[in-house]
């Protein structure tokens, strides 16, 4: 077995094996709440950063109650954020009108919408990571299938995950083989591969992954696989799941449209 990597593709699924009240919820309830959360967060207007703040609660509570460690989540966030930053970066250039001044520093509309995009990326990606780490890809697949998502999509998702392992394992062992035989070969370039070598490595990674995929597929066909993953354990939607779904939906909708930050601000202003 290979050692742990910086991003271990199995890590989230491993976390999904922890036992906690959040883990025990039916995957369908968690999928619906996560989807609603993402929709609500995305629907907040870009210029209202304060209105996003209450939404930090949802993932934090989730991670806290489920006992999910911070490090693996932060690592994955770090991978996702540059993409959000790239999307938001254009706003900085396009929208240069100063709309707010904090301590004498003028903030343009672009800066605010850039920050809003980053914050929303952190929130929504964490919510998705939370869903995977408290449910596991396989149970998410089962939930989606039972909810009526066409089998072909569910199978795609599950296989994407399965083959991620396959390819990352192949890549790690190839990288090791290169490292072991390239000592001193490229003086002053101990890290990073020359482009030519990188190209041929990628090519052979593709070929090896395809070979491996063929063997996995054979093994599946040998055990009667016909294209649909079926689920041995039948999911049960219990009263606890209804309570979770109902209360989360109510809180999310209230946070979106009642805007407690203004209300709280009003209360504090009133006290003064």
């Amino acid at each position: 077995m290979s050692g742990r990597h910086w991003i271990d593709p199995g890590e989230l699924d491993e976390l999904a094996r922890i036992d906690s009240p959040v883990h025990r919820l039916d995957p369908r309830a968690k999928i619906l709440v996560t989807a609603l959360y993402i929709l609500v967060v995305m629907s907040v207007s870009p210029d209202r950063i304060a209105a996003l703040m209450p939404f930090v609660l949802f993932p934090s509570l989730g991670f806290g109650i489920a006992g999910i460690p911070v490090t693996p989540i932060v690592r994955r966030l770090a991978i996702a954020l540059p993409f959000a930053a790239m999307i938001g970066a254009l706003n900085l250039v396009v929208d240069r009108e100063i709309v707010l001044s904090v301590c004498g520093i003028g903030l343009t509309g672009g800066v605010i919408s850039f920050a809003s995009i980053l914050i929303r990326a952190v929130l929504t990606v964490s919510a998705a990571l939370l869903l995977v780490s408290v449910t596991g890809t396989h149970r998410i697949g089962a939930g989606l299938a039972v909810m009526g998502v066409p089998g072909i999509f569910v199978t795609q998702v599950l296989f994407l995950v399965r083959y991620l392992f396959v390819i990352s394992d192949e890549a790690v062992s190839m990288r090791r083989a290169v490292d072991l035989r390239s000592a001193g070969y490229h003086p002053g370039r101990s890290r990073g591969l020359p482009l030519r070598l990188f190209g041929s490595l990628m090519g052979s990674l593709l070929v090896r992954s395809l070979d491996r995929a063929v063997r996995v597929h054979r093994a599946m066909r040998a055990r009667g696989f016909t294209g649909d993953v079926r689920y041995a354990g039948i999911l049960r939607f219990r009263s606890m799941d209804w309570v979770f779904l109902g209360s989360c939906a109510a809180v999310l909708i209230a946070l979106r449209w009642a805007d407690p930050t203004q209300w709280l601000g009003g209360v504090i202003a009133g006290v003064r």
């Binding site: 396989h138 063997r215 054979r218 093994a219 066909r221 040998a222 009667g224 016909t226 041995a232």
Partner: peptide, 30 residues
């Protein structure tokens, strides 16, 4: 395929479900 149980050379090719239990259940469920 029901009559012939085939154990492949590399167990990593054969085991693809998230837990051993689910992997062992894969054939019967299918």
């Amino acid at each position: 395929r029901r009559a012939v149980g085939y154990v492949f050379q590399d167990p990593d090719d054969q085991l693809f479900m998230p837990t051993v239990r689910e992997d062992v259940a894969f054939g019967p469920v299918n």
